[in-house]
Nucleic acid binder design. Structure first.
Length: 342
DNA sequence: AGTCCACAGGAACCGTAGGGAT
DNA sequence: ATCCCTACGGTTCCTGTGGACT
């Protein structure tokens, strides 16, 4: 049933990117100076999740590596490496310059110095989910180093700008900005059927089923491929010859649940209690949250800390907040808002 | 209009943990 | 074994904002 599992994986970068020619060309042109050994501008790539931001960034840098001998690329997921240290470490690690760096006793400034002294080939740094950085000043550090070209990937440009300081905002505003929209259902179908063609045996899934996946995912390519992967895996395990409608239905729910679980797993036990309170009692204000939380838990944290938790969970798209002041209330984000599969 | 109060979020500070140096 | 550094999570303190109530 599964011919090539690689093309169904989340991080797979296809040989051809569909329906993103303009964006690919735009981003390529920003990096163009590198082909002449000159420094390139910072690029900002924004768009909703599953719009192909990560995909085209990696596609473009890989193509650049094919064209130019003397260029490195490194990819950092800032959601997983949300501290300044981890991000810097990740970059240095990819450059092979971490041998004698130790977690605690090496000051952060030295990591930046280390980057500055790096006289290897020009390097394209992809900072994915850059709006999740705790301390975005690292963008500034990298920005000032001419041997590094940066691609910043974020959901919304405002959320990125609101978190960095003014001098960086003005610099970023003048950098090239690649905006991406959700895919249309037709485009999603094309992407899916290409993956199905390479990844699955023939006649494992019908066109009609592919359309339904595309329709259910509300423009999110990553989600569609996740659904396809989950469905194919399940059909394979259960020795079906083809993907049945029942399997597809389950897969759609599983794929959504997995995405959410990934965020949920990153919460501390205290944060989890707060999340559960909002889930059970929301929409609910911060005072009530803290009250209930204090009852549920030994050794409760302060209100201030709970506020930090709440805004963190808002960033992770686990919670949403309504109101700006005393009317502030938190509730769960409605993850079933995307149309369920028929 | 004026006061009050819950809220957001920045800044300074603190205790702890983990690693290096001696 | 001991001391020293630093990151990190948390707290305390603070300012600014804007509903709600008088």
């Amino acid at each position: 049933m599964i011919r090539d599992a690689r093309v169904l994986r989340a991080g797979f970068v296809p040989r051809e990117v569909e329906h993103r020619d303009a964006e690919v060309n735009h981003l390529s042109s920003v990096l163009e100076p590198i082909t002449n050994g000159e420094p390139a501008d910072t690029a900002i790539v924004t768009g909703p999740s599953g719009a192909g931001k990560t995909c085209i960034s990696q596609f473009v840098t890989e193509r650049l590596r094919e064209e130019v001998l003397n260029v490195e690329t490194t990819y950092v997921n800032c959601w997983r490496n949300y501290t300044r240290f981890r991000t810097l470490y990740q970059i240095l690690d990819d450059l092979g310059a971490t041998i004698d760096i130790h977690r605690q006793s090496t000051p952060h400034d030295e990591l930046v110095d280390r980057l500055q002294q790096h006289d290897g080939p020009r390097t394209v740094v992809i900072l994915d989910e850059v709006d999740q950085l705790e301390d975005p000043s690292i963008i500034y550090d990298l920005h000032s180093l001419p041997q590094f070209a940066i691609i910043c990937i974020a959901n919304k440009e405002e959320e990125l700008f609101s978190r960095v300081d003014d001098r960086l905002v003005s610099r970023l505003r003048s950098s090239e900005h690649v905006r991406m929209d959700k895919y249309h259902d037709e485009q999603l179908y094309d992407i899916l059927s290409a993956r199905a063609k390479w990844g699955l045996d023939e006649d494992v899934i019908t066109d009609d089923q592919l359309y339904r996946i595309a329709d259910a995912a509300a423009g999110d390519a990553r989600l569609t491929i996740g659904i396809l992967r989950t469905a194919a895996g399940k059909a394979d395990r259960e020795n079906h010859e083809r993907i049945t409608d029942d399997i597809l239905l389950d897969a759609a729910e599983d794929a959504r649940a997995q995405i959410k679980q990934k965020s949920l797993d990153s919460l501390t036990p205290h944060q989890r209690v707060v999340y559960d309170i909002v889930r059970e009692h929301g929409p609910v204000g911060p005072s009530e949250i803290h009250e209930r939380y204090s009852e549920d838990v030994d050794d409760p944290r302060t209100k201030r800390t709970i506020r930090t938790y709440l805004s963190k969970m808002e960033q992770y798209n686990l919670l949403e907040a309504e109101g700006t002041s005393r009317d502030r209330e938190y509730s769960l984000v409605d993850s079933a808002a995307a149309s369920p599969m028929q």
